[in-house]
C-alpha cells in the first residue's frame, strides 16, 4: 500500500489555487491553529489577478473589444487551462488565439483569435533580438544594375501575419476609436521595429510572397518574380521602400556571395 500524499504537497496546492471550487487544503492554518479559510484565497487571488492583468497588458485590443467583464471571464478560464509554461511572463498567452478561435461565445467575432495573434506578434517583435540593418548609404550605393542580384536578410523583429479578416484595421480601430471602421476582407500585416517600438503595416497582394523569397535567401529578382506570380500588378518598389525606411534589411546570411557588393 502506498500512503496517500499529504494534503499540503504542491500538486494539491497548485490544483486548489487554480480551482476556487476545490476546498482549502487541510494542514493550512492561521497563527492560532485554526483552518486557514480565506487566508488561502489570498494566494488564489494573487495568482488569478496577476495572470489576468498580464493578459490585459499583453492583449490590449482584445481587452478593449471584449470589454472588462467578458475579457476577465475568459482570462480566468484560459489561465486555468493554460497557466504560464515558464516564468517569462513576456511569453504568456501563446495559446490564447486558439482558445479564442474555439470559444463558442465568440461565434460572431471569429476574427478575435487573429487579433490576439497580431498582438502576440507585436509583443514578440518588441522583445526580439536587435538587428544590424544595412545603413541607408550602403543601400544607396548599390548600382541599379546590381540590384536584381542582391540578396538581403531581414531583421529578427520582422513579423508577417496573414488573416482572413481585416485584422489590422480592427486593431487600429480598437485602440483608436476615431479610426475608420474596418471593412470586410482579408489583410496581410507586416510588423517592423525600427528602434524599440514595433509598428504594423498593411501589406499588398504579392508582398508576402516577396518577403518569403527574401527570407529564404533568394535574390531580389527572384523575390520580385515571386510577388508578380501572386499579383501581376505587384509593386516591389513599395515594399522595398518600406523595408528600407523601417531599417528592416540586413546583410544576407544565406548568400553564397557577399550580400552587398558596391564595387
Amino acid at each position: 500500500m502506498i500512503a496517500p500524499a499529504p494534503p499540503t504537497d504542491q500538486a494539491h496546492l497548485r490544483a486548489a489555487i487554480l480551482d476556487p471550487a476545490q476546498p482549502v487544503p487541510q494542514g493550512l492554518q492561521d497563527g492560532a491553529g485554526r483552518p486557514a479559510g480565506r487566508r488561502f484565497s489570498v494566494y488564489r487571488n494573487n495568482v488569478a489577478v496577476s495572470l489576468t492583468e498580464a493578459l490585459i497588458d499583453g492583449f490590449p485590443a482584445c481587452y478593449r473589444l471584449l470589454g472588462d467583464e467578458t475579457f476577465r471571464g475568459m482570462a480566468g478560464a484560459y489561465l486555468r487551462v493554460h497557466p504560464p509554461a515558464s516564468p517569462l511572463m513576456m511569453h504568456f498567452g501563446q495559446a490564447l488565439p486558439a482558445f479564442l478561435d474555439a470559444a463558442p461565445q465568440l461565434a460572431r467575432m471569429r476574427w478575435m483569435g487573429d487579433l490576439a495573434r497580431l498582438e502576440l506578434a507585436l509583443r514578440s517583435a518588441y522583445h526580439a533580438a536587435d538587428g544590424a540593418p544595412l545603413p541607408h548609404a550602403t543601400l544607396a550605393a548599390i548600382p541599379p544594375e546590381a540590384l536584381p542580384d542582391q540578396r538581403f536578410g531581414l531583421v529578427p523583429a520582422l513579423r508577417v501575419l496573414r488573416s482572413d479578416w481585416p485584422v489590422l484595421s480592427i486593431h487600429v480601430k480598437a485602440l483608436d476609436p476615431t479610426a475608420p471602421t474596418a471593412q470586410p476582407g482579408a489583410e496581410d500585416v507586416l510588423i517592423t521595429r525600427t528602434d524599440y517600438d514595433p509598428q504594423a503595416h498593411l501589406l499588398a497582394p504579392g508582398d508576402v510572397a516577396f518577403l518569403a523569397a527574401l527570407r529564404a535567401g533568394d535574390t531580389l529578382a527572384t523575390a520580385i518574380a515571386a510577388g508578380a506570380a501572386v499579383n501581376t500588378d505587384h509593386d516591389p518598389a513599395a515594399i522595398l521602400t518600406l523595408l528600407m525606411q523601417t531599417a528592416s534589411l540586413t546583410a544576407s546570411l544565406t548568400a553564397a556571395e557577399p550580400a552587398v557588393q558596391t564595387n
Binding site: A11, Y43, P83
Partner: peptide
C-alpha cells in the same frame, strides 16, 4: 518560496512548510 509545479508557473511566491 515556490512558484512552479509540474510545468505550470503560477506567478506568485507560494508558501513552504
Amino acid at each position: 518560496a515556490w512558484s512552479t509545479h509540474d510545468g505550470a508557473f503560477l506567478n506568485d511566491l507560494l508558501p513552504l512548510p
